[in-house]
Simulated scan of single mutants.
Amino acid sequence: MARRENSEINAGSMADIAFLLLIFFLVTTTMDVDSGIARKLPEKTDEKPEVIIKEKNVLDIVVNRNNQLLVENEFVEVTDIKRLAMNFIDNGGGLSTAKDGKPAEPCDYCNGAKDPASSDHPTKAIISLQSDRGTTYGMYVSIQNEIEGAYNELRNKLALSKYKRSYKDLLDDYKDNGSESLKEKIDFLKDSYPQIISEPEPIK
C-alpha cells in the first residue's frame, strides 16, 4: 500500500495577504489629533506694574461645575453671551486709554448705549471668564466661541463701515497676498476692538 505524504500549507501567500491588509489599514485609518484653543499668552516679565482697573470696565462671567452661567451675578444662557459681550465692549461710555502722550478720547466708532455704569472704551473693556474645575470642556469652549464671535462681529461692523468690506474678507485676502495695506487695515480693526480676556484660577 502506497504511503501518503503529509501535505504542507504554503504560508508564503498568507504573509503577502497579511502585509497587504496591514498597508490597507495604515492608509485608510484616520488618526485623532488633539486640538485646542488658539490664545496668545502674554510674555513673561519680571516687572509687575500696578494697574488700576475700574470695576465697570470688567464683565464678570462665571460658570460653575453644573455648567450654569452667571454674568454680573445674573443667570444667563450660553446664547446670551455674545449679545451681552458686544453691548459691554461697544458701550463707549467714557474715554480711551492715553497712548504715547496723546490725550484720551471718547470712542467715535462705538454704537453702544454709552451707559456710564458700563465700560468706558473698547480698549479698556475686559472680559473675565472664571470656570470651575468641574466645568465641562464643551461648555468652556462654547463660551469662548461666543466671546470670540462678539469681537469678530464688532470688527466686522467697523470694517463694513470704514472699508466697505467684511473683516473676514480682509483676513482672507491678506492670507492670499499679504498686502501691507491690508495688514494696516486689519491691525486698525484689532486695535479698535482689542481682545482682552482675563481668566482667573478655576474655582476648586
Rank of each mutant, 00 (worst) to 15 (best):
K56N: 09
I143R: 13
R65Y: 04
R65F: 06
F75A: 15
P122R: 01
N57A: 01
P122M: 03
S119D: 03
K54P: 10
P103T: 06
S118D: 10
I52E: 11
R65Q: 13
P103C: 10
R83L: 06
H121W: 03
N57L: 03
D90E: 11
K54W: 04
Y140E: 15
V141Q: 13
D80R: 01
C107N: 03
M139E: 09
E77F: 04
S142M: 12
E74C: 00
A113M: 13
G101L: 08
T123N: 12
N66S: 14
G134S: 05
V51T: 10
Q130W: 01
D90N: 15
N87T: 11
V51C: 05
K124M: 10
S96Y: 02
T79R: 14
P49H: 01
V63S: 10
A113L: 14
I143G: 02
R83Y: 03
E105F: 04
M86E: 05
P49Y: 02
N145I: 10
I61H: 04
R133V: 13
N73W: 03
I89D: 00
D132H: 11
N57V: 02
R133A: 13
A85C: 04
P106N: 01
L41V: 05
I147A: 09
E47K: 13
N145T: 13
G149V: 10
E146G: 07
F75S: 15
M86Q: 09
N73D: 09
E50D: 08
L41D: 08
N67V: 01
A98D: 11
L129A: 12
A117V: 12
G92N: 01
D46E: 08
A85R: 07
S118E: 10
N91E: 03
S128K: 12
E72R: 14
P49V: 03
D90V: 14
D120Y: 03
P106C: 04
R65N: 15
D46A: 09
I61G: 05
D60Q: 12
P49Q: 05
G92E: 02
K102M: 14
P42C: 03
D80Q: 00
G149N: 05
K48C: 08
Y109F: 15
S131H: 08
D80N: 03
V71T: 05
N152W: 02
E43Q: 13
E55S: 14
V71M: 11
E72W: 04
D60L: 10
T123I: 03
G134C: 01
E146V: 07
S118R: 15
G92T: 07
F88I: 06
E148Y: 07
N152M: 12
D115S: 01
G101S: 09
G134V: 02
N91R: 06
S118I: 06
H121L: 06
T123E: 08
F88W: 11
D60A: 12
S96R: 01
S118H: 05
N66F: 06
D80P: 05
